[in-house]
């Protein structure tokens, strides 16, 4: 079984969805940091990029 990744901010173990995909955004349940899945094997998280002024829909 693949080890669950940890939050780069608070080091908490972060559960990921079973159908997680690369570059998916998730939140740390402990500290609330916005995180990005930067690798699936091994499952690795990094801080998501900060929202920029031109981001939107």
């Amino acid at each position: 079984m693949t080890a669950l990744p940890t939050c780069p901010t608070c080091d908490a173990v972060v559960p990921v969805p079973a159908d997680v995909v690369a570059n998916e955004l998730i939140s740390c349940p402990d500290c609330g940091s916005d995180l990005e899945v930067v690798s699936l094997n091994p499952l690795t998280l990094d801080l998501a990029p900060d929202v920029e002024e031109d981001w939107g829909e």
């Binding site: 690369a22 570059n23 990005e36 981001w55």
Partner: peptide, 14 residues
Amino acid sequence: LITHVRPEEKLLLA
């Protein structure tokens, strides 16, 4: 073409 995968992109991939 994406910046990252939001719930919408995950739905589109599906």
